[in-house]
């Protein structure tokens, strides 16, 4: 199994672990950690797509010809996308944690089933 395939499996593992946590674990903070894992898995998946075995980092440096660079560099588009998506993931997480703190202050528990059971 080559490196790219292994990384793809890792991203799949992250997504499945995260989905499991987000759906089945009752504790709010752990749900949120699970969601962070889903986002991490999606980012890893995107980065894997651009990988090129035996290639170079997609930064154009002196001494490279444009043709050689185009043939050998990793694909930079997913990397540019993932930069944005990491930041989005972090901000979503921050908002969720803030909401979790407010909810804890209101209900005195982090258990989702107890929290949502309170409303009629």
């Amino acid at each position: 199994m080559d490196f790219q395939m292994a990384s793809l499996f890792a991203s799949g593992a992250f997504i499945i672990i995260g989905l499991f946590a987000a759906v089945f674990i009752d504790n709010l903070i752990k749900k949120i950690i699970g969601i962070a894992f889903i986002e991490e898995g999606a980012n890893l998946f995107l980065i894997c797509l651009g990988y090129k075995a035996g290639g170079v980092v997609p930064i154009f440096m002196l001494g490279m010809s444009a043709d050689w660079f185009a043939a050998n560099s990793a694909y930079p588009l997913p990397q540019a996308l993932v930069l944005t998506s990491i930041v989005i993931g972090a901000s979503t997480l921050a908002v969720m944690l803030a909401l979790a703190m407010v909810l804890y202050r209101k209900h005195g528990t982090l258990s989702v089933s107890e929290m949502m059971g309170d409303e009629k």
Binding site: I35, E39, A42, L49, L103
Partner: peptide, 23 residues
């Protein structure tokens, strides 16, 4: 706050799914 949290959790699952689809 409860509704916001629920919507947020569903959104945080829906968003990465969309990202994966784009991937």
């Amino acid at each position: 706050y409860e509704i916001a949290m629920k919507y947020m959790i569903l959104g945080a699952i829906g968003g990465p799914m969309l990202l994966l689809g784009i991937g």
